[in-house]
Write a protein that binds this DNA or RNA. Structure first.
Lengths: 142, 142
DNA sequence: GATAAAATTGAGAATGAGTCTCAAAATAGT
DNA sequence: ACTATTTTGAGACTCATTCTCAATTTTATC
């Protein structure tokens, strides 16, 4: 958690921005769990403790977290953008339930190595990749 | 093009639906090129020839085309859902150049089989999958 | 620690892609 | 043609996200 704060602060300073209270609260809440999150969930989570952080500020802070390399935009699910941690996390792929919205994270070195192989063939320099599937989770497919 | 029409008609009949004029126009326009498309672009394209197809009907027809297996939802770009042909096209993954926007389509049976294997382990019923990477293409990485 | 300039915030209005409603029009079976 | 059913266009609506702007907070400077 402290590491994330340092990374974020360093990024903000480099851009002439400030690590304000709302930004600190958002950062803390984002990294309080290892889950994927979306703005609504994050807002609810924050509201449990702090009545003074607005949705607008969350929407404004997320691009800063993305730019700083701490999180990245991930799936779009139920018409909502979702985000996931990137700092200190291995790559993984997603199985997304279209019915209940559950996200199963799966590690796969295989998928990664295949993509790398294909990228090499096409002289493509991969910065970021995404592997995933949509469908029904165990519970919802009964 | 005729094949697509047959596939679509067969699907519609199986659902007790009709291949109406607007649906025919939409189908024709979608398969007039091999490009990815979004609703706005499709609407503009259709409007050049036909003044009588509404956005609502396009939005209503796209899920039918998806269900019939002719197209699938693809990338989301500039806040818009994009679609791509699937009928007669092998599954492929995308290498998207972040600089010039070029999309390289790559075939890979391997990626598909890995996803299927992982889904089985997690009792997940895959309806749709997506594999891709962002980065720099050959030209842009020089 | 007071002050002022600059950055940031909260609240709510605005935007815009996608969905829904419903009366009118097209379709298919008889 | 006649009727029942499906489909359509137009526009209202939804809802995630973005924008606006006056009020507040922050930081640098005294």
């Amino acid at each position: 958690m402290e590491k994330e704060k340092l990374v974020f602060e360093k990024y903000l300073v480099s851009k002439g921005l400030k690590l304000t209270k709302p930004r600190k609260i958002i950062l803390d809440t984002v990294f309080a769990t290892h889950e994927h999150f979306n703005v609504d969930g994050l807002y609810d989570q924050i509201r449990k403790k702090h009545k003074d952080v607005s949705r607008a500020t969350i929407y404004r802070t997320i691009p800063l977290l993305v730019e700083s390399g701490l999180i990245k935009q991930s799936l779009r699910c139920l018409a909502k953008d979702h985000y996931e941690h990137t700092y200190g996390h291995d790559r993984h792929l997603h199985l997304i339930c279209e019915k209940c919205g559950k996200i199963i994270e799966v590690e796969s070195k295989e998928a990664e190595s295949i993509l790398k192989k294909l990228a090499k063939i096409h002289n493509f320099d991969i910065k970021e990749y995404n592997v995933g599937a949509k469908g029904l989770c165990r519970k919802c497919s009964d």
